[in-house]
Amino acid sequence: MSSFLLFLQGHEGRYTIYVHASREKPEHVSPLFVGRDIHSEKVTWGKISMVDAERRLLANALQDSDNQHFVLLSDSCVPLHNFDYVYDYLMETNLSFIDCFYDPGPHGNFRYSKNMLPEVRESDFRKGSQWFSVKRQHALMIVADSLYYNKFKHHCRPGMEDGRNCYADEHYLPTLFYMMDPGGIANWSVTHVDWSEGKWHPKAYRAKDVTYELLKNITVCAWFILWFLRKWLLRTLAYGME
Protein backbone atom coordinates (compact mmCIF):
# COMPACT_ATOMS: atom_id res chain seq x y z
CA MET A 1 0.00 0.00 0.00
CA SER A 2 1.43 3.38 -0.99
CA SER A 3 2.07 6.21 1.44
CA PHE A 4 -0.84 8.22 0.05
CA LEU A 5 -3.24 5.31 0.46
CA LEU A 6 -2.24 5.13 4.10
CA PHE A 7 -2.47 8.92 4.38
CA LEU A 8 -6.04 9.01 3.01
CA GLN A 9 -7.33 5.75 4.50
CA GLY A 10 -10.36 6.25 6.72
CA HIS A 11 -10.96 9.84 5.64
CA GLU A 12 -13.30 9.28 2.71
CA GLY A 13 -15.72 12.16 2.24
CA ARG A 14 -13.21 14.76 3.43
CA TYR A 15 -11.30 15.08 0.16
CA THR A 16 -11.63 14.76 -3.61
CA ILE A 17 -8.86 13.93 -6.07
CA TYR A 18 -8.29 15.33 -9.55
CA VAL A 19 -5.53 13.91 -11.74
CA HIS A 20 -4.09 15.85 -14.66
CA ALA A 21 -3.72 13.21 -17.36
CA SER A 22 -2.74 13.02 -21.01
CA ARG A 23 -5.23 12.08 -23.70
CA GLU A 24 -3.84 8.55 -23.67
CA LYS A 25 -5.52 6.28 -21.15
CA PRO A 26 -3.42 6.35 -17.95
CA GLU A 27 -2.68 3.24 -15.94
CA HIS A 28 -3.62 3.79 -12.31
CA VAL A 29 -2.43 1.41 -9.64
CA SER A 30 -4.66 2.85 -6.93
CA PRO A 31 -8.48 2.82 -7.18
CA LEU A 32 -8.40 6.32 -5.66
CA PHE A 33 -7.36 7.73 -9.04
CA VAL A 34 -9.67 5.74 -11.31
CA GLY A 35 -12.21 8.03 -12.97
CA ARG A 36 -10.56 11.16 -11.57
CA ASP A 37 -8.67 12.15 -14.74
CA ILE A 38 -8.85 15.66 -16.19
CA HIS A 39 -7.66 15.24 -19.78
CA SER A 40 -5.99 18.04 -21.68
CA GLU A 41 -3.69 19.03 -24.49
CA LYS A 42 -0.02 18.10 -24.27
CA VAL A 43 1.87 19.76 -21.43
CA THR A 44 5.48 20.81 -22.03
CA TRP A 45 7.93 21.51 -19.21
CA GLY A 46 8.69 25.21 -18.80
CA LYS A 47 5.88 26.46 -21.03
CA ILE A 48 2.54 28.12 -20.29
CA SER A 49 0.83 24.76 -20.82
CA MET A 50 1.94 23.86 -17.29
CA VAL A 51 0.01 26.83 -15.92
CA ASP A 52 -2.93 25.84 -18.13
CA ALA A 53 -2.91 22.40 -16.50
CA GLU A 54 -2.97 23.93 -13.01
CA ARG A 55 -5.85 26.25 -13.91
CA ARG A 56 -7.76 23.37 -15.51
CA LEU A 57 -7.46 21.27 -12.37
CA LEU A 58 -8.64 24.16 -10.21
CA ALA A 59 -11.57 24.89 -12.52
CA ASN A 60 -12.77 21.30 -12.23
CA ALA A 61 -12.27 21.17 -8.47
CA LEU A 62 -14.16 24.46 -8.00
CA GLN A 63 -17.30 22.88 -9.46
CA ASP A 64 -17.71 21.05 -6.14
CA SER A 65 -18.88 23.68 -3.64
CA ASP A 66 -17.69 21.52 -0.74
CA ASN A 67 -14.07 22.01 -1.81
CA GLN A 68 -12.67 24.87 0.26
CA HIS A 69 -8.91 24.30 0.00
CA PHE A 70 -6.91 23.10 -2.98
CA VAL A 71 -3.50 21.41 -2.89
CA LEU A 72 -1.39 20.83 -6.00
CA LEU A 73 1.10 17.97 -5.70
CA SER A 74 3.23 15.86 -8.02
CA ASP A 75 3.36 12.07 -8.15
CA SER A 76 6.72 12.19 -6.35
CA CYS A 77 5.34 13.87 -3.20
CA VAL A 78 4.83 11.99 0.06
CA PRO A 79 3.11 13.27 3.23
CA LEU A 80 5.21 14.21 6.24
CA HIS A 81 2.30 14.33 8.71
CA ASN A 82 -0.95 12.43 9.20
CA PHE A 83 -4.16 13.42 7.44
CA ASP A 84 -5.86 15.06 10.43
CA TYR A 85 -2.85 17.28 11.11
CA VAL A 86 -2.65 18.52 7.52
CA TYR A 87 -6.42 18.83 7.07
CA ASP A 88 -7.03 20.77 10.29
CA TYR A 89 -4.15 23.16 9.67
CA LEU A 90 -5.11 23.98 6.09
CA MET A 91 -8.84 24.28 6.77
CA GLU A 92 -8.35 26.56 9.76
CA THR A 93 -5.76 28.91 8.27
CA ASN A 94 -6.75 32.08 6.44
CA LEU A 95 -3.65 31.91 4.24
CA SER A 96 -2.78 30.29 0.95
CA PHE A 97 0.66 28.72 0.64
CA ILE A 98 2.33 30.18 -2.43
CA ASP A 99 6.11 30.25 -2.64
CA CYS A 100 6.98 33.87 -3.47
CA PHE A 101 10.33 35.68 -3.34
CA TYR A 102 12.43 38.25 -5.17
CA ASP A 103 15.42 36.79 -7.02
CA PRO A 104 17.74 39.41 -8.56
CA GLY A 105 19.94 36.78 -10.23
CA PRO A 106 20.07 35.13 -13.67
CA HIS A 107 17.38 32.60 -12.74
CA GLY A 108 15.06 35.28 -11.36
CA ASN A 109 14.53 38.84 -12.54
CA PHE A 110 16.90 38.40 -15.48
CA ARG A 111 13.99 36.48 -17.01
CA TYR A 112 11.71 39.52 -16.85
CA SER A 113 10.64 41.13 -20.13
CA LYS A 114 9.73 44.81 -20.47
CA ASN A 115 6.96 43.67 -22.79
CA MET A 116 5.01 42.94 -19.60
CA LEU A 117 4.68 46.66 -18.93
CA PRO A 118 2.65 48.49 -17.81
CA GLU A 119 0.74 45.76 -15.97
CA VAL A 120 3.79 43.95 -14.57
CA ARG A 121 6.83 45.97 -13.51
CA GLU A 122 10.22 44.39 -12.95
CA SER A 123 10.01 45.30 -9.26
CA ASP A 124 6.85 43.17 -9.01
CA PHE A 125 8.31 40.12 -10.79
CA ARG A 126 8.56 37.19 -8.38
CA LYS A 127 9.66 33.56 -8.36
CA GLY A 128 8.54 30.43 -6.50
CA SER A 129 7.71 26.74 -6.58
CA GLN A 130 4.79 25.62 -8.75
CA TRP A 131 3.38 23.37 -5.98
CA PHE A 132 0.86 25.21 -3.85
CA SER A 133 -2.08 25.13 -1.47
CA VAL A 134 -4.77 27.80 -1.92
CA LYS A 135 -8.03 28.83 -0.29
CA ARG A 136 -11.18 28.82 -2.40
CA GLN A 137 -11.20 32.58 -2.97
CA HIS A 138 -7.66 32.40 -4.31
CA ALA A 139 -8.46 29.43 -6.55
CA LEU A 140 -11.27 31.52 -8.05
CA MET A 141 -8.84 34.40 -8.56
CA ILE A 142 -6.37 32.17 -10.44
CA VAL A 143 -9.03 30.76 -12.74
CA ALA A 144 -10.65 34.15 -13.40
CA ASP A 145 -7.44 36.04 -14.21
CA SER A 146 -6.79 36.86 -17.84
CA LEU A 147 -4.85 40.14 -17.67
CA TYR A 148 -1.70 38.85 -15.98
CA TYR A 149 -2.06 35.36 -17.43
CA ASN A 150 -1.82 36.73 -20.98
CA LYS A 151 1.29 38.74 -20.10
CA PHE A 152 3.04 35.55 -18.99
CA LYS A 153 1.63 33.52 -21.86
CA HIS A 154 3.18 35.84 -24.44
CA HIS A 155 6.26 37.17 -22.64
CA CYS A 156 7.50 34.40 -20.31
CA ARG A 157 8.66 31.35 -22.22
CA PRO A 158 11.82 29.42 -23.11
CA GLY A 159 13.94 30.88 -25.90
CA MET A 160 13.03 34.55 -25.55
CA GLU A 161 14.98 37.49 -26.92
CA ASP A 162 18.65 37.81 -25.90
CA GLY A 163 18.80 34.07 -25.28
CA ARG A 164 16.84 34.29 -22.04
CA ASN A 165 14.58 31.53 -20.77
CA CYS A 166 11.51 32.30 -18.69
CA TYR A 167 9.35 29.58 -17.13
CA ALA A 168 5.78 30.65 -16.46
CA ASP A 169 5.09 27.98 -13.84
CA GLU A 170 7.88 29.45 -11.68
CA HIS A 171 6.82 33.10 -12.01
CA TYR A 172 3.14 33.54 -12.88
CA LEU A 173 1.48 32.64 -9.56
CA PRO A 174 4.12 34.26 -7.32
CA THR A 175 3.85 37.50 -9.31
CA LEU A 176 0.05 37.36 -9.47
CA PHE A 177 -0.29 36.98 -5.70
CA TYR A 178 2.41 39.53 -4.93
CA MET A 179 0.43 42.07 -6.94
CA MET A 180 -3.13 41.04 -6.05
CA ASP A 181 -3.03 39.83 -2.44
CA PRO A 182 0.47 39.77 -0.89
CA GLY A 183 -0.96 39.63 2.62
CA GLY A 184 -3.05 36.57 1.81
CA ILE A 185 -0.15 34.18 1.22
CA ALA A 186 2.47 32.63 3.49
CA ASN A 187 5.34 33.10 0.99
CA TRP A 188 6.34 29.44 1.17
CA SER A 189 5.14 26.26 -0.48
CA VAL A 190 3.66 23.10 1.03
CA THR A 191 6.54 20.90 -0.16
CA HIS A 192 10.14 20.46 0.90
CA VAL A 193 12.78 20.09 -1.80
CA ASP A 194 16.56 19.88 -1.76
CA TRP A 195 18.28 22.05 -4.38
CA SER A 196 21.78 21.46 -3.01
CA GLU A 197 22.90 19.56 -6.12
CA GLY A 198 22.66 22.72 -8.23
CA LYS A 199 20.74 21.07 -11.07
CA TRP A 200 17.60 22.01 -13.02
CA HIS A 201 15.58 19.61 -10.88
CA PRO A 202 15.78 18.99 -7.12
CA LYS A 203 17.50 16.04 -5.49
CA ALA A 204 15.68 12.73 -5.95
CA TYR A 205 15.58 10.79 -2.69
CA ARG A 206 16.53 7.13 -2.86
CA ALA A 207 16.20 4.37 -0.29
CA LYS A 208 19.68 5.00 1.13
CA ASP A 209 18.79 8.67 1.74
CA VAL A 210 15.71 7.95 3.88
CA THR A 211 16.72 8.16 7.52
CA TYR A 212 15.07 9.17 10.76
CA GLU A 213 17.38 12.19 10.98
CA LEU A 214 16.36 13.36 7.50
CA LEU A 215 12.66 13.28 8.31
CA LYS A 216 13.22 14.85 11.73
CA ASN A 217 15.23 17.72 10.26
CA ILE A 218 12.51 18.43 7.70
CA THR A 219 9.48 18.20 9.98
CA VAL A 220 11.00 20.01 12.97
CA CYS A 221 11.48 23.44 11.44
CA ALA A 222 11.72 26.61 13.49
CA TRP A 223 10.35 28.91 10.80
CA PHE A 224 7.47 27.20 9.02
CA ILE A 225 5.59 23.93 8.58
CA LEU A 226 5.97 21.66 5.55
CA TRP A 227 3.42 18.96 4.80
CA PHE A 228 4.90 17.03 1.87
CA LEU A 229 8.33 15.93 0.71
CA ARG A 230 9.37 15.96 -2.93
CA LYS A 231 11.06 14.30 -4.85
CA TRP A 232 10.90 10.63 -3.79
CA LEU A 233 11.48 7.85 -6.29
CA LEU A 234 8.78 5.16 -6.45
CA ARG A 235 11.23 2.49 -5.35
CA THR A 236 12.04 4.64 -2.33
CA LEU A 237 8.37 4.79 -1.41
CA ALA A 238 8.02 1.02 -1.57
CA TYR A 239 11.16 0.59 0.51
CA GLY A 240 9.99 3.07 3.12
CA MET A 241 6.68 1.29 3.64
CA GLU A 242 8.09 -2.18 4.21
Rank of each mutant, 00 (worst) to 15 (best):
residue 14 R to V: 06
residue 70 F to G: 07
residue 173 L to R: 03
residue 92 E to S: 14
residue 53 A to D: 10
residue 137 Q to D: 12
residue 204 A to K: 08
residue 3 S to Y: 04
residue 173 L to N: 01
residue 224 F to D: 03
residue 59 A to N: 14
residue 120 V to K: 08
residue 209 D to C: 07
residue 57 L to W: 07
residue 125 F to I: 02
residue 15 Y to I: 05
residue 178 Y to K: 13
residue 54 E to M: 15
residue 90 L to F: 03
residue 27 E to Q: 09
residue 36 R to L: 04
residue 45 W to K: 07
residue 5 L to V: 04
residue 214 L to V: 05
residue 139 A to S: 07
residue 80 L to P: 03
residue 36 R to P: 01
residue 216 K to N: 13
residue 223 W to T: 14
residue 106 P to E: 10
residue 60 N to D: 14
residue 46 G to T: 02
residue 187 N to V: 05
residue 125 F to S: 02
residue 170 E to R: 04
residue 187 N to H: 14
residue 46 G to D: 05
residue 138 H to G: 01
residue 196 S to M: 05
residue 123 S to H: 02
residue 74 S to W: 06
residue 59 A to C: 12
residue 76 S to A: 15
residue 232 W to V: 11
residue 66 D to P: 02
residue 94 N to R: 00
residue 180 M to H: 11
residue 107 H to K: 13
residue 120 V to D: 12
residue 218 I to L: 13
residue 102 Y to H: 10
residue 24 E to T: 07
residue 203 K to L: 10
residue 154 H to S: 13
residue 139 A to E: 09
residue 115 N to I: 04
residue 181 D to T: 08
residue 192 H to Q: 13
residue 241 M to Q: 15
residue 61 A to F: 12
residue 25 K to S: 14
residue 40 S to F: 12
residue 109 N to M: 12
residue 131 W to H: 05
residue 115 N to P: 06
residue 140 L to A: 05
residue 158 P to N: 08
residue 223 W to V: 09
residue 44 T to R: 10
residue 7 F to E: 00
residue 66 D to K: 12
residue 165 N to Q: 03
residue 185 I to S: 06
residue 91 M to A: 02
residue 156 C to S: 10
residue 67 N to M: 10
residue 143 V to T: 02
residue 217 N to L: 09
residue 70 F to K: 11
residue 149 Y to K: 11
residue 44 T to C: 08
residue 238 A to D: 13
residue 135 K to C: 01
residue 106 P to W: 03
residue 51 V to R: 03
residue 183 G to E: 14
residue 45 W to D: 10
residue 123 S to P: 02
residue 184 G to W: 08
residue 74 S to T: 11
residue 33 F to K: 06
residue 65 S to A: 14
residue 150 N to W: 06
residue 117 L to V: 09
residue 232 W to R: 03
residue 107 H to D: 08
residue 56 R to N: 12
residue 67 N to Q: 09
residue 57 L to D: 07
residue 236 T to I: 11
residue 61 A to V: 11
residue 147 L to D: 11
residue 31 P to K: 05
residue 115 N to V: 04
residue 43 V to P: 06
residue 193 V to S: 15
residue 159 G to V: 00
residue 73 L to Y: 05
residue 208 K to G: 00
residue 235 R to Y: 07
residue 130 Q to F: 12
residue 57 L to C: 10
residue 51 V to H: 03
residue 225 I to R: 14
residue 191 T to I: 15
residue 37 D to V: 02
residue 90 L to M: 05
residue 48 I to K: 02
residue 54 E to I: 03
residue 54 E to P: 01
residue 232 W to Q: 04
residue 134 V to W: 00
residue 173 L to C: 03
residue 116 M to R: 09
residue 225 I to F: 00
residue 169 D to T: 00
residue 40 S to A: 15
residue 80 L to Y: 08
residue 18 Y to N: 13
residue 2 S to D: 13
residue 119 E to P: 05
residue 148 Y to S: 04
residue 20 H to Q: 12
residue 23 R to K: 15
residue 85 Y to W: 08
residue 124 D to I: 02
residue 117 L to E: 15
residue 40 S to Y: 09
residue 142 I to D: 03
residue 79 P to H: 11
residue 106 P to A: 11
residue 110 F to D: 14
residue 134 V to H: 02
residue 64 D to V: 12
residue 56 R to Q: 15
residue 214 L to P: 04
residue 102 Y to N: 07
residue 216 K to A: 10
residue 191 T to M: 04
residue 173 L to T: 07
residue 98 I to V: 14
